[in-house]
Design a protein around this nucleic acid. Structure first.
Lengths: 115, 115
DNA sequence: TATAATACTTACTTCAAAGTGTGTATTCCT
DNA sequence: AGGAATACACACTTTGAAGTAAGTATTATA
């Protein structure tokens, strides 16, 4: 039996992966192939990319289309449910942005790449 | 130089600690002594409790009052800035609650202790 | 013939967060 | 004199997420 003290723990399990929010954000602008995501996220390893996509798929956030071609072609997209997740991602992003701005104004050496 | 792709990464750093949301939620109902928090969160170890409190303090979310008594007395409370954090904690909690409800209705063996 | 492209899998390593267990200073109480 | 209570510190171990590196199957193309 899995137990949570607060709902936030489930949120963190689903969206807390190091690259998950970024993946979902990128997919929000349209479905993408694995190789496209690799190019868009240069610092992620192939293994971790696939892993996070599998978990996002298992949690119903993204969907997967296999074209059964050779060489392989697979595409990922954000599901309807994933769009509700994107809404909290947005909120978490904006609070975090504010926090970074604050810390930066206090002299911390930090940078936000996001536009 | 610390770099973030998205604002959410800062949010996760600040609120992603295993017990942080719970601590902040408990402190929202009024300031509390270390020993009270220990009793309210039976599964946390003393070391980790202190650690998370220190980090929340460093990040401006909670404040600390030392009464300089013997035996020691210290109290923690949520700062003004911490209250803005509590707002996203709430949102993350409600999305997570919904997610748990969904998974439970699909037969998963999970439980939410939060009322 | 052999190299490229694609979407993976598998084995192994690294690292930081979390957990475990013990110790400390001081005062009150019995 | 001995024990309880409080808020820690310190050293060590465990765990899981992430990172690294290599390998696989299939087809097209030079």
């Amino acid at each position: 039996m899995k137990q949570y003290n607060l709902g936030i723990e489930a949120t963190l399990e689903i969206l807390g992966g190091k690259w998950k929010a970024l993946i979902v954000c990128l997919l929000m602008s349209g479905k993408k192939r694995t190789s496209e995501l690799e190019r868009l996220i240069p610092d992620i390893s192939q293994k971790v990319l696939i892993q996070q996509l599998r978990e996002l798929e298992r949690d119903g956030i993204v969907g997967r289309i296999n074209y059964h071609q050779m060489p392989p072609k697979v595409e990922y997209y954000v599901t309807e449910y994933g769009i509700t997740a994107n809404k909290i991602i947005d909120i978490m992003c904006s609070w975090g942005r504010e926090n970074i701005r604050l810390r930066k104004s206090q002299g911390e050496d930090i940078e936000l790449l996001e536009k």
